[in-house]
Nucleic acid binder design. Structure first.
Length: 422
RNA sequence: GGAGAGUUGGCAGAGUGGUAAUGCACCGGACUCGAAAUCCGGCGAACCGAUUAACAUCGGCGCGCAGGUUCAAAUCCUGUACUCUCCUCCA
């Protein structure tokens, strides 16, 4: 959520920067007009309330002195009606202002590339070289099905498309991967969390999924519960409506959780394999920090995610998302994309974002500065990493011509010494 | 799922219709070489608005949340969330 006062005071700058994210200037105009209307109504109602408070005091006095105050009471009855009318209108306007403001995305950091879509993203670093195969590399779903470790057919039977079973060494590989990730993050100072997987609407609002992106998630019917689309939601809402003791900052959290996404609007894309599922495991990183350190923290987080890929021996590159490709709450996002041989391209496996105070303002997450003044923290989140996609990358990058898959060195301890899936 | 109790400032804790006691903590001052103790004064979150360059001042709001009754609600009514205890159920 952007600060309305800030928008008011920096109208043209806000318009220009949000325009790079596809927000029309008229929307801002509408918002500010409604806000002006709101403030006018506030003045009106508060003036009347003040009057009522004063007269009520007189009435109380009169009663104490056993005098009548019928005339005042009658007058205040009138005033009460007026207040009621004005405040009904005020409430309407307030809801409108709130709703519009809640649908504005974060201001992009001025240094990121400006452009309408992903073609404007900029590669900032490339690590590892894609392996030259002496044979035609197979897609991971073929490898997995042949080895009997991924079962998409039964996933479809039991649940539907975009669901699967991991079987035997497949399940073990998945578990090895996320245990490895959690251990690595713990070494970097992240506290391991096991969060709830169902959250209420206030939490979804806090991180920015609601109100705008309700169609992307699974909600429980007739209950205020939503299956988390990412552990970012429970991790970032952990401190919702709280003041974090300053000495605790920065806070580093990591968690493994399933992520549930409806994938509405992605029909026909990545219909096979582990790339796009309704349920997938992800190890998430979340940070809360002081505003002045958030960009350093973003760099560190991106490195933390990258280190996992490096240790797994998977080639990847880091890109900075353009204004048009960035998520709603982010001010700056670095994506890590891993090499997928069968597609001969890099695919997103992590997304690390600095949301600055955008989520903190929505979720009321604060700290006290040196002067004791309350201030919003900055929040960051990043995948470290998407587990299913990591498994896909391992299967493809470590496949052998005979259909077996070599287990990356660092995972062998987690696989009870298994070094080859056959 | 059933029954009961609770939710008030950073903490503790009064207040059952007249506009939030008190204590601790905190801030300032006095005393002191300094500190403690003591005394005096101040301060009760956050939020919104008006005026302001800002500090500040004034006002609104504010007793878990949302409604209602009333000239006036922490207090009465309705709904609801959460916490605790007991029962039931269950892993």
């Amino acid at each position: 959520m952007l600060d309305i006062k800030m928008i008011r005071q920096n109208e043209s700058d806000v318009k220009a920067r949000l325009a790079t994210r596809g927000v029309k200037a008229e929307l801002i105009d509408q918002l500010l007009a409604a806000d002006q209307q709101r403030r006018d109504l506030v003045v009106k109602s508060e003036t009347l309330r003040q009057q009522r408070n004063e007269v009520s005091e007189q009435i109380a006095q009169a009663k104490r002195n056993k005098k009548t105050a019928d005339e005042e009471i009658a007058r205040m009855k009138q005033v009460g009606q007026q207040i009621k009318q004005i405040e009904e209108k005020l409430k309407e306007v307030q809801v409108k202002v709130q709703d519009w403001a809640a649908r504005l995305p974060n201001l992009p950091n001025p240094t990121i590339p400006v452009g309408p879509d992903e073609s404007y993203n900029v590669e900032i670093k490339k690590i590892g070289t894609p392996k030259e195969f002496t044979f035609k590399p197979k897609p991971h779903w073929e490898i997995g099905e042949k080895l009997g470790i991924l079962d998409f057919e039964r996933g479809a039977k039991v649940s539907g498309s975009r669901f699967l079973y991991y079987v035997g060494l497949g399940a073990k590989l998945e578990r090895a991967v996320y245990n490895f990730m959690l251990d690595e993050h713990e070494k970097e100072g992240y506290t391991e969390i096991l969060p709830p997987y169902l959250v209420n609407a206030a939490s979804m609002y806090g991180t920015g999924q609601f109100p705008k992106f309700k169609e992307d998630v699974f909600q429980i019917q007739d209950q205020d519960l939503t299956l988390i689309p990412t552990a970012e939601v429970p991790l970032t809402n952990y401190y919702r409506d709280e003041v974090i003791p300053t000495e605790k900052l920065p806070v580093y959290f990591t968690a493994l959780s399933p992520s549930f996404r409806s994938e509405a609007g992605s029909a026909g894309r990545d219909t096979r394999g582990l790339i796009r599922l309704h349920q997938f495991n992800k190890v998430e990183m979340v940070k809360y920090c002081r505003p002045e350190t958030s960009y350093d923290e973003l760099e560190k987080m991106t490195i933390n995610a990258g280190n996992i890929l490096e240790k797994l021996g998977l080639p990847y590159h880091i890109i900075t998302l353009s204004t048009g490709d960035m998520g709603f709450s982010a001010a700056m996002t670095h994506d890590l994309e891993v090499w997928i041989p069968a597609q001969n391209t890099y695919r997103e496996i992590s997304s690390c974002s600095n949301c600055e105070d955008f989520q903190a303002r929505r979720a009321h997450i604060q700290y006290r500065d040196e002067k004791g003044k309350l201030n919003f923290v900055h929040t960051l989140n990043g995948s470290g990493l998407a587990v299913g996609r990591t498994v896909a990358a391992i299967l493809e990058n470590y496949q052998n011509e005979d259909g077996t898959v070599t287990v990356p060195e660092v995972l062998r301890p987690y696989m009870h010494g298994v070094d080859l899936i056959e």
